[in-house]
Write a protein that binds this DNA or RNA. Sequence first.
DNA 1: CGGTTTTCCCGAAACGTTTCGGAAAACATA
DNA 2: TATGTTTTCCGAAACGTTTCGGGAAAACCG
Lengths: 340, 340
Amino acid sequence: MATLKDIARALDLSITQVSRALNDHSDVNEETRLRVKATARAMNYHPNASARKLVSGRSGMVGLVVPNNRNIGQDRLFMEVVAGLSTQFSGRGMQFVLHMMAEHEPVLPVYQKLIGKAMLDGFVLIDPLDQDPRIDFLRKTGISFVVHGRSGKSIDYPYFDIENEQLAYDLTFHLTQRGHRRIAFLNGLAGRSYVTVREQGYLRALRDGGAEVLPHLHLHGEMDDAHGLTDTIRLFSGDAPRPTAIVCGNVRLARGVYQGLEALGLSVPGDVSVVAHDDELPALRASAFFPSLTVTKSPLRDSWEPLADCLAGAIEGKPLGTLQRLGSYSFIERNSVATP
Amino acid sequence: MATLKDIARALDLSITQVSRALNDHSDVNEETRLRVKATARAMNYHPNASARKLVSGRSGMVGLVVPNNRNIGQDRLFMEVVAGLSTQFSGRGMQFVLHMMAEHEPVLPVYQKLIGKAMLDGFVLIDPLDQDPRIDFLRKTGISFVVHGRSGKSIDYPYFDIENEQLAYDLTFHLTQRGHRRIAFLNGLAGRSYVTVREQGYLRALRDGGAEVLPHLHLHGEMDDAHGLTDTIRLFSGDAPRPTAIVCGNVRLARGVYQGLEALGLSVPGDVSVVAHDDELPALRASAFFPSLTVTKSPLRDSWEPLADCLAGAIEGKPLGTLQRLGSYSFIERNSVATP
DNA sequence: CGGTTTTCCCGAAACGTTTCGGAAAACATA
DNA sequence: TATGTTTTCCGAAACGTTTCGGGAAAACCG
């Protein structure tokens, strides 16, 4: 636990100069800088994070607050997020604080408290809602943050996102081009901003492609196998006009859809075409579906690096322009689409 | 971001007295204490963690360092650990720092660095190995820590553990009492301390129960479905004497074993008896096996609270006796065991 | 050689908290 | 009234770092 004082004493320098040498300030002799750095390493000195935070306002620690309302234990996505972000920040010499809230605990007071303790430099915000109150709150406090996604009309904060509107458009429009006129969309939970945005892309493509807009074909829900299965069964029960194609919000939904169609005795793509967006979650390969699944692909694991980048940049005070990034996706045509 | 100074000024008190009032020291008037606490809440004051850490040595932050060598993305256990610990510490008003190391990065320098930065009060240590070097290292530095499990001969540190020796004994001895003489044990990865300890329990039960000790029936490996399946196939191939019963380190292994036995045309328990230890991981119910599985049960999710308790206690300087805890387990007899 | 700039360094203050040692006032004891 | 005791308070120092404002010496310029 060597301190600046120890190094200063060892080299017969002032604490000031040692600090400046280690922080690469301009007015310190090149030779002394080297001597200081050498002895710092030798005494394996690490700057005391608390002292540093106290005076400079930076601690190198960032936080993720996770509302624990859903069954986290089952959630593969959550693990991806946590493992990805933690690895990224650890690799940058930063610390990653994971705060899991109690169920039904209000969110904003938690941020309030964490900010009050003044130990975090910033936050990562995931799963933004339409008009997310967290964003307004954090913006008001002035603390740095980065959003995984976008929400609200004035987007004047750092984010990393993919073009959800466009990929929903691409998937849907592809189906209209193959002649489909009744296209269902199994979307995510209503209220999530990416869900709303995808809906817009879906509707735009329906109009552009000359397909029917049928509200009963647009469904919201958890994006897992079970909902894919049950939604499919429902779409093909009852009297309402049935779809000839289904757009799935992710590959898990698509797996459920395949099961549902098989149970109904319908074939893919003979009776029903299916497309999906592929986050490339582990152990779930769209190419291994039978028939293999046509998707827009954008690996979720490519999110963590830009997210960490943007947050680190925001903390360093970089201009907003460099802190708003869009990930790319690719359209991969396989064998799950045919003409109706 | 109210500070002690703000409160002091508002109440015309000294900073000292405000601090003492908030920390429930003895020499402060009951009435002033209440006034102070009221205004503190009103100004929603939160003590600055860095300043506190700097002077008192406590920051209320603890860390978990995770070696990222295995495929974390797939690991359900990891998620349980992280979600459980984070929830526990958050609930105690403490902060949980998750540090995921790069693959093949040496561990001890990471601890060294984190301790050097002096922002953490302690560590949770999981998956201890026999003679785990991390334990020796942390002990030498003097920082608080708690181990999930036990390792080494002189166990003079806080831990939470279950009686792995005894439960392996119970499972194995149960089979000997039903007349089994050749009992296989699908254990975990060699080198883990709980694996070694379970082996001892298994061997002790074989001797006590008068069964044969056949080294080729004791197998090590990752404790998942795949290994349960492949190990089972191997146990019943070749010329070596075949087991009439199998002890599984967890329920995932047991599921693989059931699949393997079915593939071999062997029935449970008619041809082979199977028992396991049940960590009660979500979405894997031993009672839903067919035939339902006889187990020793000890929910893993019951570990996080005592672990957090013990670490918090260690940081507060409580005596070691209260910081070494053993979880209980129960033996649940179902339908997967018969006489050979 | 006088004046100006550059180079390299340092003391002291500040961040917000806890805690040590003392001290004034009120109260009890003799 | 003098002496101790308890109650309630406060000033000042300390934790380890960064940074502001200066300052001495060396280098440069005409």
